[in-house]
Structure formats: C-alpha cells, structure tokens
C-alpha cells in the first residue's frame, strides 16, 4: 500500500517512469508474426530494394572530387557498427549529426557534391546500406562529453508536453507502453530498425520522418528535416536503447 501511494505520488509529480532494462523490447516484438516474417526474410523485406541502390551509390564516383564512398571507406561491410553509434559529434560541423547528416557531410566536404535531400532515395539508400552493416550489433551511443548537453536536451524534449493534445513522448511510450491506442499496441519507441520500411508509407523512411508523424499526431508543429531538435531526440532515444540489438532496415506497420 505504501508502495502504491509512493507510485501515485510519483505520478502526480509528473515523473515518467523510465523503462527498466529487463522490460525493454524492440517494436519488432509488438508486431504481428506475419510482419515480423517480412523483416526476417530479406527477400520479403522491400527495404532491400533500397539497399540494392545503396550498393550502387556506394561505388559511384561523385562530385568535383570524383570520389566514391568506396574510394575512402572500402567495402560497405567495413561500416559495421557505425550506424549503431550515431548520432555522433562531428568536428567538421561542430555539432552532433545523425547518419544522414554524416553522409551529406561526406558528400559536401569530401566528394565536393551537393547534399542529398532528406528522405530522398539516394540518402535513404546509402543510410540503409550503412545501417544494415550493424545488424545484430548492440546500440552503442558514444560516451563523448560534447554530446551530453544535446542528449540532455533530447531527454527534456522527450518528456515535454507538446501540441494541442498536450502529450509528451514519455506519456505514451513509457507510461502507457504495451497498452492499446485504438487498435495499435503502443511500442516503447526504441530506434532499433531505422531506416524502416513502414507499411503505412509503402516506402523506406528515416527516424526523423517517424518523429514528424508523432508530432503531427499530437497536433504539434513538426520541425524541419535536419533540425537540431530531432538530432537531440535521436541522441536521447539511442541512449535509452543502448545495448539493444540493431535490426536495420526494419519493417514496421
């Protein structure tokens, strides 16, 4: 009873309960077996069509420097583990950047080519190719002290109420995880599978696109793609999911 009262007081104090490590689960486990099977079989996972493009782009010489990704990095397989530790602090941007932004920095700084548009086929394809190399690896956010204030900002954003519906991410994805929002099970919001082939989109899409969907759902003004607020949220989400296995490119409803 005492414990119950304590829990209630905690709730009243507006503290969202962080998910204990033993209870963390990927959104994969909240999907029906038939959608899980789509992710499990690369031949049934439409995201692999983007990976195929990614392989082409990886080897194409681009920009004024006439260099390909492969010219510097070698085989795509050498990118194993990279996606599992992004966003990271980019010295050349003097800011934390996500994987899309890292790819674009490579384009503008190394290849001397124009940056790809967010959610473009090129950027999603390269991201999918690089991300796939980290499959089965554990999410491992860097312990770079320069990231701390940004991760903290992301944590605050995660717990901040927004929009006409006045909801925070944590209210749904922590306090009410596993419950039903209409017919859908509320997942824990771990970024284990990005970029994802979302059945609703019938396309591959980034974590930023998914965050944008959430903001629109709570009737909040979405940020522009690439906004530092999204990167901060990504940083916090990766920290929250540290140690969970990476499964990109995932399939989600």
């Amino acid at each position: 009873m005492k414990r119950l009262l304590g829990a209630l007081l905690l709730l009243a104090a507006q503290a969202s309960a962080e998910i204990p490590e033993a209870e963390r689960r990927s959104g994969y486990h909240d999907m029906s077996p038939s959608v899980q099977a789509m992710q499990d079989d690369d031949m049934a996972n439409p995201a692999m069509l983007w990976v195929l493009d990614g392989e082409k782009f990886w080897n194409q010489r681009q920009g004024a420097a006439n260099e390909s990704c492969a010219d510097c990095h070698g085989e795509a397989a050498r990118m194993a583990g990279v996606a599992a530790r992004y966003p990271a602090f980019a010295t050349d941007a003097n800011a934390p950047v996500n994987l899309d932004q890292r790819i674009n920095l490579c384009r503008t700084e190394q290849q001397k080519a124009p940056a790809f548009e967010y959610e473009s086929r090129e950027l999603l394809s390269l991201n999918a190719l690089v991300s796939m190399q980290s499959r089965e690896q554990q999410i491992a956010p860097p312990s770079d002290p320069r990231l701390l204030p940004f991760t903290q900002a992301g944590a605050e954003a995660f717990n901040r109420r927004q929009g006409q519906l006045n909801l925070s991410c944590a209210q749904c994805h922590e306090d009410n995880r596993g419950r039903k929002l209409a017919g859908a099970t509320i997942p824990q919001a771990h970024p284990t599978g990005y970029p994802i082939y979302r059945l609703e989109w019938q396309s591959l899409g980034s974590l930023q696109r998914r965050l944008r969907n959430c903001l629109i759902g709570m009737r909040a003004e979405p940020y522009a793609y690439g906004a530092p607020e999204y990167v901060a949220l990504e940083l916090y989400l990766m920290k929250r999911a540290a140690g969970m296995p990476f499964e990109a490119p995932g399939v989600r409803p």
């Binding site: 929002l181 209409a182 017919g183 859908a184 609703e200 989109w201 696109r209 944008r212 969907n213 959430c214 629109i216 759902g217 009737r219 409803p253």
Partner: peptide
C-alpha cells in the same frame, strides 16, 4: 484491419 493510430498527416 486495425486503423493505424498515428497515420502520417492525418490531422493536417
């Protein structure tokens, strides 16, 4: 078919 709860741009 359950209705997806957070459908992109549903509310805009």
């Amino acid at each position: 078919v359950t209705i997806a709860a957070c459908v992109e741009d549903l509310l805009q």
